[in-house]
């Protein structure tokens, strides 16, 4: 009798596809991320079509496909932890997924989640402030409504940004994060179709 294959790992037939064209699509997504991080608060359309596994949205999935690999540890907030999301990231990115938020290079959460974990994210140290985490926050809607006024490097005068459902505690954390400069955590807001970012240099006025 032939042994039955063990069904612990993902069946490839269940997997959603990654990028259509690895080189071009990851470049296009990276350029959107680079523009977003260089110009905090500016909103960029997701330049490629991707399918998102249950637990993640499209822009967050595209960001991870473009940026994550075996050298980056991913942390998923409890609301994002699904078998589909885990399988998708392991298959397409080959990235380790940790349950310890302190280990994360990229932490992924939903805006409606309990965001108290953010203070545990790595902020780097004074000599290597780049050894810090990036928070990818999945949101429903990003717009340039003036609910936040942003200033800092990358911003000519001011940028306006509104993120639906952003809790009060987030702003307190960002203010504290800004004071940690050059250490700190950078944030990427990812809706289904758009990306915007907050650098650790960005000063936020809540209107």
């Amino acid at each position: 009798m032939t042994p039955q294959p063990q069904s612990t790992s993902a069946q490839t037939s269940d997997l959603l596809p990654g990028f259509d064209h690895t080189a071009f699509d990851s470049n296009a997504v990276f350029r959107a991320l680079l523009d977003a991080m260089s110009r905090p608060g500016r909103i960029y359309d997701l330049p490629v079509a991707v399918s998102a596994p249950d637990g993640l949205n499209k822009a967050a999935t595209a960001t991870l496909l473009a940026m994550a690999d075996m050298d980056t540890t991913i942390w998923l907030s409890p609301s994002c932890v699904t078998k589909a999301a885990g399988d998708h990231l392991k298959f397409h990115c080959g990235c380790p997924i940790s349950t310890d938020v302190k280990q994360a290079d990229f932490a992924i959460a939903r805006i409606s989640d309990d965001l108290s974990f953010v203070t545990d994210l790595a902020i780097g140290n004074a000599e290597y402030p780049d050894q810090s985490a990036t928070l990818i926050l999945m949101v429903d809607e990003i717009s340039d409504q003036p609910s936040m006024t942003l200033k800092g490097p990358g911003i000519k005068d001011t940028h306006s940004l509104a993120v639906k459902g952003l809790p009060e505690s987030f702003h307190a954390w960002r203010a504290e994060n800004h004071h940690l400069f050059p250490c700190g955590v950078d944030v990427i807001f990812a809706s289904e179709t758009q990306i915007a970012a907050l650098s650790r240099t960005t000063r936020i006025e809540v209107n």
Binding site: M67, T72, D130, D186, R200
Partner: peptide
């Protein structure tokens, strides 16, 4: 590969670039 470097190398450089713009001059 497209633009000479392999995709994993490009991702590593891209991650460094995102940190570099977040910490200007570092």
């Amino acid at each position: 590969n497209f633009a000479y470097l392999d995709e994993q190398t490009k991702r590593m450089i891209r991650r460094a670039l995102l940190k570099a713009v977040a910490i200007p001059g570092y």
